[in-house]
């Protein structure tokens, strides 16, 4: 009875996971096909990868997308961390509540609303659409997630640490750099990471606020996919998957080592 239960649940999990990975492997599989579409595998070829590496436009977009993600997440992390500290320090409960509610508006808003309202905003201010507007948008929608990642760390922090530091003669800057910052650094890092992925992954907002001159990977894939199947995109997705996998593997190793070190003894 117990065993049977076990087998069914494993089977269910295997099916769902299989379905989750099927499209990704389907893409990668056909990136090696010499055909023109994803229906019949002709024979093995690296041709699409060769085309990809000679596609200067796509490579430029790829680099620009990464730069955009890095830049926007850095700025968002800075402002978001400040915001988290400001919220945490807010004296009245009401003010804190209002700040948190405003913070969460962009978290729960649908992408199209964010995109559309930013478009109106940039036009109203006369900011031309392009790299600048996309960068500002990415910073804007990444800030709340940074705040949400840093805030719990601040809440968990033992207040007496600050009192103790001040008691021992630390000034404001010391308290910030020697007490506050080390405690919230894990939150800042995960906030940065989240902001980075938000930026890399965004399509809808970018699609609204980008003009004709600037394009990100998502927008480029969209416009190519609308024209039909292009196995160069398959090759691109294979590369991106390998890249993500490598990142995950490194992360997993670090995490495992950390866990191993911290493994608690049974009492």
């Amino acid at each position: 009875m117990k065993k049977k239960h076990f087998v069914w649940s494993r089977l269910y999990m295997a099916i769902v996971l299989f379905m989750m990975y099927l499209p990704i492997f389907y893409l990668i599989f056909y990136s090696f096909s010499s055909g023109k579409n994803m229906s019949r595998f002709r024979h093995f070829t690296w041709a699409h990868y060769v085309t990809l590496f000679h596609d200067d436009r796509l490579l430029a977009i790829f680099i620009e997308t990464i730069m955009l993600a890095l830049l926007s997440s850095l700025v968002a992390t800075l402002i978001g961390t400040f915001g988290a500290i400001a919220i945490d320090q807010a004296k009245s409960k009401k003010f804190k509540g209002i700040l948190l509610a405003l913070n969460n508006i962009l978290m729960v808003s649908p992408d199209v609303i964010i995109g559309a309202s930013f478009l109106i905003f940039f036009t109203a201010l006369g900011i031309s659409l392009g790299f600048g507007s996309v960068l500002l948008s990415h910073i804007a929608f990444s800030i709340p997630v940074v705040v949400l990642m840093v805030l719990p760390r601040l809440k968990e922090m033992d207040r007496s640490l600050i009192d103790a530091a001040q008691d021992l003669g630390a000034n404001q800057f010391d308290v910030f750099s020697k007490i506050l910052l080390p405690v919230i650094t894990p939150g800042i890092l995960s906030g940065f990471f989240m902001a980075f992925t938000y930026s890399l992954d965004d399509f809808a907002v970018t699609f609204f606020v980008t003009g004709n001159g600037f394009s990100t990977l998502s927008v480029e894939i969209y416009s190519r996919a609308r024209q039909g199947i292009d196995l160069e995109i398959n090759a691109l997705s294979a590369l991106m998957f390998v890249f993500v996998l490598a990142l995950v593997f490194v992360y997993y190793l670090i995490e495992k080592r950390r866990r191993f070190k911290k493994a608690p003894k049974r009492g």
Binding site: I24, Y26, L27, I221, A225, S237, F241
Partner: peptide, 12 residues
């Protein structure tokens, strides 16, 4: 994996 890539896979 980029949302657009996954959508694109389903076209195939």
């Amino acid at each position: 994996i980029n949302l657009l890539l996954k959508a694109y896979a389903f076209i195939g």
